[in-house]
Structures are given as structure tokens and as C-alpha cells.
Amino acid sequence: MWRPSGLFHVNYSQEIAFVQTPFQWVMLVLGLFVTFALPLFIPLDALNFFIKAFITITAVLGLTLLTGNCGQISLGHTAFMAVGAFVGAPLLNQGVPLILCLIMAGLAGGIVGLIFGLPALRIKGFYLAFATLAAFYVIRFILIHYFGGVVGHNVPPPSILGFSFNSDFRIYYLIASTCFAMTYFTKNITRCKWGRAFIAIRDHDIAANTLGVNVYFYKLMAFFIGCFYAGVAGLVLSIYMGWASVDHYSLTNCIWYLGMIIVGGMHSISGAYLGVFFILGIEEMGIVIAPKLAELFPQLAGSMIGAVPIIFVGLVLVLFIMIEPRGLVHRWEIIKTSIRIFPFSN
């Protein structure tokens, strides 16, 4: 991205380098600076939006790896988030250090994901999508019946080295750092051997197998890693909410997450960022507009606030997939190319 023409890679380490041009360094530093300075300048509402966005990005990055890169569709992602939250929250309550809790939540999500990813070894496509949907209901059932899911767990504000994350302002930094750490991790996976194996499996698993990719191992690893993200994101969400309950991890959210990776453009990290901000923006718009619509149609006011954001996002996703199924990143690439080769574009 952002590489002018005439600049070529001359060796492999350049090809896979994390940051490739000085301009990207500038953008990276600038981006980090803006993100961390942001809370000082924006009102609380906007801050909450960004908190939500960064949590969502953490979860969606997992899906980018699992679905976008490895091609394994998972409709159970929010259930794996819930697993992370329900393992992490009691640990936090008992005073286990935050970092350890996050890792434990990730591992728990990952291991449960691994178990429910087992059908992926034999099925794919619609069958797998539905198997993961079944997994969603099974996990939800187990959490509700054996882990007190509906009532949930109270999550105390965690702290690192005495610094307590007890306000939205402070939690923002925790969440943004988690998100960036996970982004870095994702980038690293996609540029190593594993990432290439995932892509090979997505494009054709049998062909990948004949080329020496251990399909079973990598499919399960994709589930493990993808659900690791879910676990971490789930715990982070419960920290932000101050409460872990299965109701925070609904099927609707999972559908939106998958919609985000499609809107973003499936397999790129920037796609995940774009998709999340786009869809959350639409949802936010619905939340803002709903009360105004409620004034216009008072007889429908009762259900307006719940329904309008869902209608908005659902409609936008439907239209988006119909019109631009390859995502915003694809459109962005086209625009970028036509700018770069201006005036020779058509």
C-alpha cells in the first residue's frame, strides 16, 4: 500500500517487511499518535464509539484470519467471545493479573474453537457454516446452564501495576493497545508460513494438501487462532461493560462481524478496520436517527430504538453485497490505481 511505481522489492525480506516505505513509517507513527491522543479531544459519546470499534476490530481480526484467510466460515464467533469472557471474568474477580487473564481468555476461546472446529475437517461451505451455527447454540446453552450465563459475572475494573482502568477514558487505552497488539500479531501471521498455508487452504484445500500443506493441522490452527482473538475480544468487551452476560454476545453481532469482513474486503487487515468503522458508523447513524423517527411515528416509538439500527445495518449489508461483493478495499484499490496512473485512467 502507498508504494509509488518504480519501487521494487529486490529481496524476500523486503517483500515481507512489516513496514515497507518511509511514508508508511510516517503514517504508522502518526496513526498511533492520533489514536492515543484522541480521547483528549473528543467528547465521551465519540470515545465510546471508538472503544466499541476497537473491541470489534479485535474480534473481527480473528474472523479475518479464520474466514477471510483460511476460508472457514464461522457463525459461532460471538459464542467463542462469550467463552473468553466467562473464563476471564471469574479470574479477574479473583485478582489474577490482567495480562494473564487476557491470555487465559484467549486460550479458552481458542480451545473451545478448536473443539467445535473439528467438523471443519470433513465439511465446508454451507455445511460448515451451519455446524458453527449449531456450535453457537450449544455453547450458549452450556454457558447459560452451567456458568450462570444469563445473570453473568460482575467484572471489576482491572489494573496493571496499580494503574486502575476504572473509567471509559482509561479503558480506551487498554482496548486500543490490545487491538494494536492483536493487529501486529495478525500481520505477522499473514506474512509467515502459516498465513500462506491458510490462503492455500482457502483457495483449494485438496490442492493445498497435494502440495504438502497439512490441511487438518492448519484448519484446526486457524480455528484456534481465530477463536483466540474472539476470547480476548470477549473479555475486553466484558471489561468495558463491567459485566459478562451471554446477551452481549448475540448471533446478530456475529452476522455483523462477518458482514464487516465482507464490506472491508475479506482478507486484509485494513479491510477489517474499514469494515468495522463503516458498519459501526451505519449502526451509530441508526441509533442517532431512531429517536427522531420515533417522534415522527409515535405509534411505533416503542420498538423504534431497538429496530432501526438493525434495519439500517441489515439493509446496508444486503445492498453492499449485491452491489460490491468484493468489498471497500477492492474499490479503494481501483481508486488508488486510477489516481496513481492519472491521467491515463479511464
Binding site: 446478530t252 452476522i255 462477518l258 458482514g259 465482507i262 429496530a307 432501526v308 434495519i311
Partner: peptide, 18 residues
């Protein structure tokens, strides 16, 4: 397939909202 699945699911959510 993913686009098909998400489109039908999103359409279903849209209908639910309606």
C-alpha cells in the same frame, strides 16, 4: 458462499427489524 450466507442472514436480520 460467504457472501451468500451473509446476504441471507443480513436480509433475515433486516426482516426481523421490520
Amino acid at each position: 458462499i460467504l457472501a451468500v450466507i451473509i446476504l441471507t442472514l443480513a436480509f433475515s436480520e433486516f426482516l426481523k427489524g421490520i
